[in-house]
Design a protein around this nucleic acid. Structure first.
Lengths: 335, 335
DNA sequence: GTGAAAGCGCTAACAT
DNA sequence: ATGTTAGCGCTTTCAC
């Protein structure tokens, strides 16, 4: 590895002269600058990031903790985070909590020792279910900023990026009502998560506001004892009058669509389906699933921007929550 | 941030004593060790990773460069890499090349300045198509080890983890032949990649060995001008006698299945389909797609192990290529 | 058993 | 215009 020392020795100047020259300091004569830069380029000199970071107490690295990279939503969020971070001159260190609080605690601990300037994270399911957030607040109290996205907690005072989960489900349900649907079933694989609860509330609210809707709300959640597919098969058995499904997670909508097609439902004539799936999944369905688009790329991008803003102005104490607009995209599974 | 200096001052001992105590040096008296550790724990002392790394010229960090995180295969590989790396006490810095050589070069340059001990990567499509690999060899010549997985090049002398692409496609095609299929079409979205070429060869070889197979091989590749879906629709128009499809990439198999169902093919009676999709995609199909399982988790895991081995024994000069076994998993789309 | 000092590679205040 | 020095936080050799 080529260091400033090497360059200095080769050129018979001091290390600091080399350092200054490489930074275009006007303390250094133009031709020295030239000579230094020429040699640096020739030897492919690259400043050692560890040393620079140590010196400056600034790593230009963001710790990103996502619960599950195999979930399209998080893969896409990570994609956007990496893209925006790179654009702004930051690296990302990626940790996957795999929905476990223990891994989340571990990653946070491990990286809060000078490895990163701040964190962008979405809470592990375990953490959110128990609402045990001390480990996150501990980081904040060390003055390391965190941006929470998607899965957040009210007990953490930090910047947040979310979508209007209540509103999105409310709007989707409203749409199904406007189609004249009379038996709208909600399916959820995420009833334990904050976003799941909010979306369910939106569904319930829309139904309760519909004066001419006479059925009871039906909420079907997945359970550990059964596979998602079994739950959805049972759903069709239990709800013979079903004429609409709103799936509030990434996967159950697509699976419900497959099962319904198998049962020879005419879609969307007899049965409408709206999901919360990421676009990438949809290319595999036929007809294409109507969905609530979450603008995942915007979520990732906004998270990075918020964190870097915070990093650049540590004095600001006001924490903000940014809500990314969703959009109901009607495709082939709605009228 | 709590440093050794803080601890030393509090305890009225020297910094080096603290350092040694924390490392259980037998130069230090048991009770000093105890006192030091107690205070360290109390103040939540964590050694500054930058300083340790700088001192030891060892970062315990792996740079991971993947072409496309939205591809299930790479998401899963990343999942496995992160898991194994964490297990072995390494962090990963993730970079996404987005199939662009420029981004690949950039990431390599950026991290080869002391940020990481080595790289695990799969080549960007651009890089592989042009077989322009100087930037990768440049890193190797700086004595920074690289493990290449999935998409590799013969012009790079480093450790590699691959699957037997030729053999996997050969075996899959053999299976279709054994079903008595007479018109087997190969579909590929990756005909420009090394793995695509090898899998195609396997298909061709299997057909040419089949003495009673009279049709010509048919290879359908996607093109930039058309969507994958259009290409597959056209495929069914052009090949009216088609009775089997082998898809050698992640997505075309699933799409072909949807289209075939739409065209009222009885599957697998009239038409067999075998894909190379990752398991995660399959939960969305009905019937379930038969596939070549690539054991992606093993690929990721093996990559990490190889890299760390190399890191631990830099003297070893022999580069090896590990081939992960594939498995033909017959599900609902084959007889 | 403890401490002083050098050094990893870099920056920056302070000489000259 | 150039060099000296101290220091970021840590490890380690060498003194005492």
């Amino acid at each position: 590895m080529v260091t400033l020392k090497h360059l200095a020795e080769q050129l018979n100047v001091s290390i600091s002269t080399v350092s200054k020259a490489l930074h275009d300091s006007d303390e250094i004569s133009p031709d020295t600058i030239e000579r230094v830069k020429a040699l640096a380029k020739f030897l492919n000199y690259k400043p050692n990031r560890l040393a620079v970071s140590l010196k400056n107490s600034k790593t230009n690295t963001i710790g990103v903790i996502v619960p599950n990279i195999l979930n399209h939503f998080f893969a896409k969020a990570l994609f956007a985070i990496e893209q925006e971070a790179t654009k702004q001159g930051y690296n990302i260190i990626t940790c996957l909590s795999n929905e476990l609080q223990s891994k989340e605690i571990n990653s946070l601990q491990l990286l809060s020792n000078g490895s990163v300037d701040g964190f962008i994270m979405s809470m592990a399911q375990e953490t959110q279910v128990a609402n045990k957030v001390d480990h996150i607040n501990a980081i904040l109290s060390q003055n390391i900023p965190i941006v929470l996205f998607d899965r957040v907690s009210e007990d953490i005072d930090c910047d947040k990026v979310i979508i209007d989960d209540f509103g999105a489900a409310y709007e989707a349900t409203k749409h199904l009502l406007s189609e004249g649907r009379k038996h709208i079933v909600l399916v959820s694989d995420i009833d334990e998560l904050s976003v799941g609860k909010l979306r369910t509330s939106g569904y319930l609210e829309a139904l309760s506001e519909a004066s001419n809707y006479t059925s009871e709300p039906v909420i079907v959640t997945t359970k550990k004892s059964k596979s998602i597919e079994e739950v959805i098969e049972q759903l069709f058995i239990d709800n013979s009058h079903i004429d609409a499904i709103i799936s509030i997670d990434n996967t159950t909508g697509v699976i419900a669509l497959q099962k319904a097609l198998n049962l020879n439902f005419s879609i969307p004539k007899e049965l409408s389906i709206i999901g919360f799936s990421d676009e990438n999944v949809l290319q595999f369905t036929n007809p294409k699933l109507s969905t609530v688009s979450q603008h995942t790329l915007d979520i990732g991008k906004a998270s990075v921007k918020m964190l870097i803003n915070n990093l650049n102005d540590k004095t600001s104490v006001n924490r903000t929550t940014k809500t990314i607009k969703t959009k109901l995209v009607l495709r082939g599974t709605t009228l």
